Simulated scan of single mutants.
Amino acid sequence: MPDAPSGARIEVEGLTKRFPGAATSAVDGIDLEIRAGEFMTLLGPSGSGKTTTLNMIAGFEAITSGRIALDGSDIAQLPAYRRNLGMVFQNYALFPHMTAAENIAFPLKQRKVGKGEIARRVGEALELVHLGGHGDRLPSQLSGGQQQRVALARAVVFEPRALLLDEPLGALDKKLRESLQLEIARLHRELGITFVFVTHDQDEALALSDRIAVFREGRIEQAGTPAELYETPASRFVATFLGDSNVFAGRVRDGRLDTGWCSLRVRDAPVVDGPGADGPVALVVRPERLRIAAAGGPDTGDNVLSATVTDVVYHGAFRRVLVRFDGGGTGQVRDTAGAGGSLAVDQRVEVSWDGDAGVLVPDDEPEPVVDAPAAPVAAGAQ
């Protein structure tokens, strides 16, 4: 929309929410600064506190303690309607008896905007979400994707400085979801306002975000750019939740990781100091950083492990090869479909990688993460 306001800076400090009767806090003293105009995603499993945090920012949930500031002004005690924040829900929340245009006009009428101005803004909003000519249709006459576009238009038509989105694509099928991801990214670029987006979908978070805050049990485990979180996770939880991972758990001894069933070279591994000096660690290696070849080929890489293929999954542009290592644990390799020749179940192979292909993190997850994506994880004996 033309002349849209610039994005607002949102700050939360010590934000806490405790529900009556609950043994633990739903949100436990989090600190987070969302920069003006940024696309910030709150990512985490169910019950991690991300939606509760969004609802407190929106004003739909009262805080227990802490501070919420919009451009430096504390808004924690303001009712939702005075915060001037747009909100998009997963279930669209459209009025079924109103047309698309009437739904979009509703927040403007509540703000007592003049009829002529309402007509102009509604028309612009419909064009913005590519629904020009659909303004006279009821929600029941629109597809799920079109209804969500109406919800997006309604949330931005009054020109908020921030847009809050609570899993807005969760009810859509994969193809439509991917299409609307592109639309949301375009809207963010064109509007220039701050987006705060809640999802449990890791691919969605990686594709859309300027930064991601990973939630775990009411706290922020790590915040950073998608590349920072993917390439340098701060914990095993982040590594296994955000993307597929091979995880080798053990202790660092003399610059190598001893898993109990194999010894792995890790470049720049601590000998005396560092995360592996006084406790268990996990070596995280992404599936695309591994190489796989039929047994008996030339050894390549700092680490070479013998394994047996347990499954080969074809994904079109790539294949996912699941293996069982001879010493223990399972893992997966992702490579270009057909690269390295055909592979079959029960075939003997060698999996290799360079010493700098992985990252050492504290082993905070001795057991698989319950809510992590269902992908095999290679874990050495504790």
Rank of each mutant, 00 (worst) to 15 (best):
A4K: 08
A4L: 12
T16G: 03
R18V: 13
F19S: 06
G21V: 06
A23N: 10
S25T: 12
A26P: 05
I30V: 07
A36R: 13
T41K: 08
S46V: 07
T51S: 15
T51D: 10
M56G: 07
I57Y: 11
F60S: 03
F60E: 06
T64D: 14
D71V: 07
G72M: 03
G72A: 11
S73M: 11
I75K: 00
I75D: 06
A80G: 02
R83F: 12
V88R: 00
L94S: 07
G114Y: 08
G114Q: 11
K115V: 07
K115C: 10
G135I: 10
R137N: 06
G144D: 07
G145K: 08
G145V: 07
Q147E: 12
A151Y: 01
A151T: 10
R154E: 01
E159F: 14
E159Q: 13
R161A: 05
L164W: 07
P168A: 11
L172W: 02
L176I: 12
R177T: 10
L180F: 02
Q181V: 04
I184S: 04
I184R: 10
A185R: 15
H188T: 05
V196L: 11
T199R: 05
T199L: 08
D201A: 03
Q202S: 08
E204H: 00
A205I: 08
A207T: 12
A207C: 11
R211C: 08
A213I: 12
A213M: 03
V214S: 03
F215K: 06
R219G: 12
G224Q: 03
Y230R: 05
S235N: 03
F241V: 05
V247A: 11
V247L: 11
G250P: 09
R256Y: 13
L257W: 08
D258M: 02
S263E: 14
L264V: 00
V271F: 12
V271G: 10
G274K: 10
P280D: 15
P280N: 13
R289V: 04
L290N: 04
R291I: 02
I292W: 05
A293Y: 04
A294R: 13
A295H: 12
D299P: 13
G301A: 04
N303I: 00
L305A: 07
V309M: 09
D311R: 13
D311T: 14
Y314D: 14
G316N: 01
A317P: 01
F318C: 14
V321R: 03
L322I: 12
G329R: 00
V333T: 09
A337C: 09
S342K: 15
L343P: 02
W353Y: 09
D354V: 04
D356A: 13
A357M: 01
P362W: 05
P362L: 02
P368L: 03
V369C: 02
A372V: 10
P376D: 02
G380I: 00
